[in-house]
Deep mutational scan, measured.
Amino acid sequence: MGFKLLSKLLVYLTASIMAIASPLAFSVDSSGEYPTVSEIPVGEVRLYQIADGVWSHIATQSFDGAVYPSNGLIVRDGDELLLIDTAWGAKNTAALLAEIEKQIGLPVTRAVSTHFHDDRVGGVDVLRAAGVATYASPSTRRLAEVEGNEIPTHSLEGLSSSGDAVRFGPVELFYPGAAHSTDNLIVYVPSASVLYGGCAIYELSRTSAGNVADADLAEWPTSIERIQQHYPEAQFVIPGHGLPGGLDLLKHTTNVVKAHTNRSVVE
Results as ranks from 00 to 15, higher is better:
Gly2Arg: 10
Lys4Gly: 05
Lys4His: 04
Ser16Lys: 07
Ile17Ala: 14
Ala19Ile: 15
Val28Pro: 10
Ser30Arg: 13
Glu33Pro: 09
Tyr34Asn: 07
Tyr34Phe: 14
Pro35Met: 07
Glu44Cys: 06
Glu44Thr: 14
Val45Gln: 04
Asp52Glu: 13
Asp52Phe: 08
Val54Leu: 06
Ser56Lys: 06
Ser56Thr: 15
Ile58Phe: 08
Thr60Val: 15
Thr60Lys: 08
Phe63Asn: 08
Ser70Met: 05
Gly72Glu: 02
Ile74Asp: 02
Arg76Tyr: 04
Asp79Gly: 11
Leu81Thr: 04
Ile84Asp: 00
Thr86Met: 00
Ala87Phe: 01
Gly89Tyr: 05
Gly89Asn: 04
Gly89Thr: 05
Ala90His: 11
Asn92His: 03
Asn92Lys: 04
Thr93Asn: 00
Thr93Tyr: 00
Leu96Pro: 03
Leu97Arg: 00
Ala98Pro: 06
Ala98Tyr: 15
Ala98Val: 12
Ala98Ser: 13
Glu101Gln: 15
Lys102Asn: 12
Gly105Lys: 11
Gly105Trp: 04
Leu106Val: 10
Val108Trp: 02
Ser113Gly: 06
Ser113Thr: 07
His115Asn: 05
Phe116Trp: 15
Asp118Gln: 09
Asp119His: 02
Val126Asn: 05
Leu127Cys: 00
Gly131Lys: 09
Gly131Phe: 02
Thr134Trp: 01
Tyr135Asn: 03
Ala136Asn: 02
Ala136His: 04
Ser137His: 09
Pro138Gly: 09
Gly148Lys: 09
Ser155Glu: 14
Leu156Trp: 03
Ser161Leu: 12
Ser161Glu: 14
Asp164Ala: 12
Val166Lys: 09
Arg167Trp: 12
Phe168His: 00
Pro170Met: 05
Pro170Thr: 07
Val171Leu: 06
Val171Met: 03
Leu173Met: 06
Leu173Arg: 02
Phe174Ser: 04
Ser181Arg: 01
Thr182His: 13
Asn184Leu: 00
Ile186Lys: 01
Tyr188Ala: 01
Tyr188Asn: 04
Ser193Ile: 06
Val194Cys: 01
Tyr196Ile: 03
Cys199Lys: 02
Cys199Asn: 04
Ser205Ala: 09
Ser205Thr: 10
Thr207Gly: 13
Asn211Asp: 08
Ala215Asp: 07
Leu217Pro: 08
Glu219Trp: 05
Thr222Leu: 13
Thr222Phe: 13
Thr222Asn: 13
Ser223Arg: 03
Ile224Tyr: 00
Gln229Gly: 11
Gln229Cys: 04
Tyr231Gln: 01
Glu233Ala: 13
Ala234Leu: 05
Phe236Glu: 07
Gly242Pro: 03
Leu243His: 15
Pro244Lys: 03
Gly245Glu: 03
Leu247Phe: 11
Asp248Tyr: 08
Lys251Arg: 14
His252Ile: 01
Thr253Trp: 00
Thr254Asp: 11
Thr254Cys: 08
Asn255Gly: 14
Val256Leu: 08
Lys258Ile: 10
Thr261Phe: 10
Val265Thr: 11
Val266Pro: 14
Glu267Gln: 11
